[in-house]
């Protein structure tokens, strides 16, 4: 038995490849712990823009950036060639949105429709994340107000400034399911201080459904629908539905879409959408978004 041991040891040495050769293909990186898998990471780029089409999206602007937005809604397409399928009539909104922190942004805008000013604050107490302590959805809260600056309809009566104002509140619950698919729910409440008809409610509740499906790296199909729970009046207003295509060109995001809504702030498109899809009362529209870096980032380069 003892005599066998020496040949066995020699054999073992002969069979084992020389250490230097063995290490040629050695995975040195595996010797180091991988922190990347443990680190908490917020899910980004659920949408190309902080707006789905009309409504707010679960996406936030990066801190220190400003999004200059120019929105156009044209006339109804069914007007035919005489009005060039609605393109003769444009309604627009110009807006400036600011990214303040990772989960806080604010913006202002003005629409030609009802000469309305609007402003909002959007804050996410919870954000979708992966890694340690992951969270499945982003929850964002939006509060905004609008101010109609049209001349008073009846200047002979006593008018109050508060009559010009409306408010909206929204909870956005959204999830980026994968690289191409994002879905969000947005329960919304709009409060009008003054409504034109006594039969109309001051408070309108709606449930928003927004989503994105990426068709390629730079092109995505988007939809944005608000289902009104109350305040629908036969032949007056209806639920706003918009279907669009997001095109990212390198510096700009173009959001082209078809919609039955003409308003470009929450008060206007939730409570005052008059066109109907089933009657072909659709409008072509686009949002143009250009993001500028306004605050310099820490110099690390």
């Amino acid at each position: 038995m003892k005599k066998l041991l020496i040949p066995i040891i020699i054999l073992l040495y002969a069979l084992l490849p020389p250490t230097a050769v063995a290490q040629q293909n050695e995975d040195l990186l595996s010797l180091i712990g991988d922190d990347a898998k443990v680190k908490k990471e917020f899910v980004k780029y659920a949408f190309k823009s902080p707006r789905v089409i009309n409504g707010h999206s679960m996406e936030f602007l990066a801190p220190g950036t400003m999004d200059f937005r120019i929105l156009h809604r044209f006339g109804e397409i069914n007007q035919g060639f005489q009005n060039f399928f609605g393109l003769d009539q444009a309604s627009m909104r110009m807006g400036f949105d600011f990214g303040i922190t990772r989960n806080l942004m604010a913006g202002i805008g003005r629409s030609t429709y009802k000469k309305e000013l609007d402003a909002f604050v959007k804050y996410a107490p919870l954000m979708q994340s992966t890694g340690s302590k992951p969270f499945p959805v982003t929850v964002a809260l939006v509060a905004g107000m609008t101010a109609n600056t049209l001349p008073w309809a009846d200047a002979t009566i006593e008018n109050y400034f508060s009559s010009r104002l409306a408010y909206y509140y929204q909870i956005i619950i959204g999830r980026k399911f994968n690289e191409s698919f994002t879905l969000q729910l947005a329960p919304t409440m709009v409060h009008n201080n003054l409504v034109p008809l006594s039969s109309q409610p001051n408070d309108v509740f709606a449930l928003g459904f927004g989503g994105r499906f990426k068709l390629s790296k730079r092109i995505a199909f988007t939809w944005d629908y608000f289902h009104l729970m109350n305040g629908i009046q036969q032949d007056v207003n209806t639920h706003p539905l918009s279907l669009g295509i997001d095109i990212e060109t390198g510096g700009h995001v173009f959001q082209l879409h078809l919609s039955n809504a003409v308003g470009m702030n929450e008060r206007a498109f939730v409570t005052e959408t008059t066109g109907r899809w089933d009657k072909g009362q659709l409008r072509f529209g686009f949002n143009l978004s250009r993001v500028f870096q306004i605050k310099k980032r820490a110099e690390k380069i």
Partner: peptide, 28 residues
């Protein structure tokens, strides 16, 4: 990680850790 005995050298970089002066450039 480098092994000086045989000169083997390996690098690993997480792509999301690249930082840019402009947030939009980082997104792109």
């Amino acid at each position: 990680v480098m092994d000086t005995k045989n000169g083997n050298i390996q690098f690993s970089a997480v792509m999301k850790s690249f930082e840019f002066k402009a947030a939009l450039m980082e997104e792109h």
